[in-house]
Computed example of a mutant assay.
Amino acid sequence: MKKLISVLALSLGVLSATSAMAGSQYSHYDEHRYHSQDRHHWDNNQWNDRYQQQKRVNPSRDWRAGQKFPRAFDNNRYEISHRDSNRLNRPGRYQQWYKINGDYVLVNERSNRIIRIVG
């Protein structure tokens, strides 16, 4: 009986020690590192870069065939069917037409490369 009680007490001690170690992984060091990070301050160049990114894109002027298709436009909102315009050919396998600001862009869905641009 003494052995049973001592084994039980020992196992409870081990269990509580492991749960204490597995407790919070957040430490004071992490908190200090988070608060001491440099905050992102905007200067004029960064504002200009942000504006350039948000300007209206003209695919027939700004993009070329073979170029990576920007992920910002890889969205269902821009996808269209070739039937929506009489100027578009039927896309091949793994190809999709996108309409972006009045231009039609044919993209290979697997490689995410621009195949053709119709302005």
Results as ranks from 00 to 15, higher is better:
7 V>S: 01
12 L>W: 07
12 L>T: 09
14 V>G: 08
14 V>Q: 02
15 L>N: 07
15 L>D: 01
17 A>N: 01
18 T>I: 06
18 T>K: 06
18 T>S: 07
18 T>N: 04
19 S>Q: 15
20 A>D: 02
20 A>R: 12
20 A>H: 11
21 M>W: 13
22 A>P: 02
22 A>Y: 13
23 G>H: 08
24 S>E: 13
24 S>P: 04
26 Y>D: 01
26 Y>I: 14
28 H>E: 13
29 Y>W: 06
30 D>N: 08
30 D>H: 12
32 H>L: 15
34 Y>E: 11
36 S>M: 04
36 S>Y: 01
37 Q>V: 14
38 D>Y: 07
38 D>N: 08
39 R>N: 07
39 R>T: 10
41 H>G: 03
43 D>G: 10
43 D>E: 11
43 D>I: 14
44 N>G: 05
44 N>C: 04
45 N>S: 13
45 N>H: 14
46 Q>P: 00
46 Q>W: 12
48 N>G: 00
48 N>T: 12
49 D>V: 09
50 R>L: 06
50 R>T: 08
51 Y>G: 02
52 Q>M: 05
54 Q>M: 09
54 Q>K: 13
56 R>S: 01
56 R>V: 08
56 R>W: 08
57 V>I: 15
58 N>P: 00
60 S>M: 01
60 S>H: 10
61 R>L: 02
61 R>Q: 02
62 D>Y: 09
64 R>I: 03
64 R>Y: 12
66 G>F: 04
66 G>P: 03
66 G>A: 03
68 K>Y: 09
68 K>C: 00
68 K>Q: 04
68 K>I: 03
69 F>Y: 11
69 F>L: 07
71 R>I: 05
71 R>C: 00
75 N>R: 15
75 N>S: 15
80 I>M: 07
81 S>Q: 12
82 H>F: 15
84 D>Y: 12
87 R>G: 01
88 L>N: 07
88 L>T: 03
89 N>E: 04
90 R>Y: 09
90 R>C: 00
93 R>A: 07
94 Y>R: 14
97 W>V: 00
98 Y>V: 01
99 K>H: 12
101 N>H: 14
101 N>I: 08
102 G>Q: 08
103 D>E: 05
103 D>S: 15
104 Y>F: 15
104 Y>K: 04
104 Y>C: 00
105 V>Y: 12
105 V>K: 11
105 V>S: 05
108 N>R: 10
109 E>C: 07
110 R>Q: 12
110 R>P: 01
111 S>G: 05
111 S>Q: 11
113 R>L: 10
114 I>K: 06
114 I>G: 05
116 R>C: 01
